[in-house]
Design a protein around this nucleic acid. Structure first.
Length: 261
DNA sequence: TTCAGACCTGC
DNA sequence: CAGGTCTGA
């Protein structure tokens, strides 16, 4: 961050404005304009379980990440594990991104443009490199975006409210309710979006909604029931609150296993 | 509208 | 089975 004291000493031409640009970028990326203290208070009052655990986890923030990168990374995430997701996203960058720099013997690439992912030969190459059935999702979603205006599609998406943005995203092949909510929450600033994955389902049925029917997979009905339940509980920033709740759950679980070992 | 199954791959 | 989505009944 840029402090006032530093600002006043950086009077060289361009330096101060450059710092302000970085400052604004960081404020935007960490969403620092939101006063977390007030929200933590509200969420704690609404939920005693949150209150108890949140004391040692104050300050968890939702990042506002780049949209394109998020859409295709989350398409990779469905029914998949973290290590393979990571490797797949890295492959997208090295295959189709632009070289940024080399550092300590490693080469870094940008996340590719949608235009490149829409090319005709992408699906086959991804399939040959272990992307499985998500190869088609990635290629077809990129094609769909290009056919529907490219950059204009993104501009329009960013103007939508939560419901419209989610509907728009779910038109992409490979983007269902959960992935769409991830993108809404983590890229578009719709902080009421609440991604329900299998873990969230476990937490919800165990601690909050014991009446939930037990099934192998999260059905649309269960998905919406859980989202609405937490939106009523936490209010307009339910997605943020709930993410904090999930992180707390996993950390506690980790601590428990760690303690046991 | 709602709900099983299939689906790529790898630990 | 793993931080789901698509499909058909």
């Amino acid at each position: 961050m840029v402090y006032e004291s530093e600002k006043s000493t950086n009077m060289q031409k361009g330096f101060e404005s450059k710092n302000e640009v970085f400052n604004d970028m960081l404020i935007d990326y960490f969403q620092l304009n939101l006063n977390l203290k007030d929200y933590y208070k509200r969420w704690s009052e609404a939920d005693p379980i949150f209150a108890k655990a949140a004391k040692q986890f104050y300050g968890i923030r939702i990042l506002k990440q780049e949209v394109t990168e998020n859409i295709f990374s989350f398409i990779c995430s469905s029914n998949n594990n973290i290590s393979r997701i990571t490797s797949m996203v890295n492959k997208l960058a090295t295959f189709y991104g632009e070289k940024i720099c080399e550092l300590d013997g490693e080469t870094y690439y940008s996340f590719p443009d949608v235009e490149v992912l829409a090319r005709g030969d992408v699906e086959a190459k991804l399939r040959a490199n272990g992307f499985g059935y998500r190869s088609k999702y990635i290629n077809e979603s990129a094609k769909f975006i290009m056919q529907n205006g490219g950059n204009r599609w993104f501009d329009d998406l960013k103007k939508c409210d939560y419901i419209d943005a989610k509907t728009c995203l779910m038109k992409l092949n490979g983007v269902g309710a959960k992935v769409a909510d991830c993108i809404c929450l983590m890229s578009l600033g719709h902080l009421e979006a609440l991604p329900v994955d299998t873990h969230v389902y476990q937490i919800a049925s165990k601690f909050y909604m014991p009446q939930l029917s037990t099934r192998k997979t999260v059905t649309d009905k269960i998905y919406n029931d859980i989202g609405n339940h937490f939106r009523e509980l936490y209010g307009p920033l339910a997605g943020w609150a709930h993410t904090v709740r999930v992180i707390i759950y996993f950390f506690a679980k980790y601590q428990f296993y760690h303690f046991k070992a």
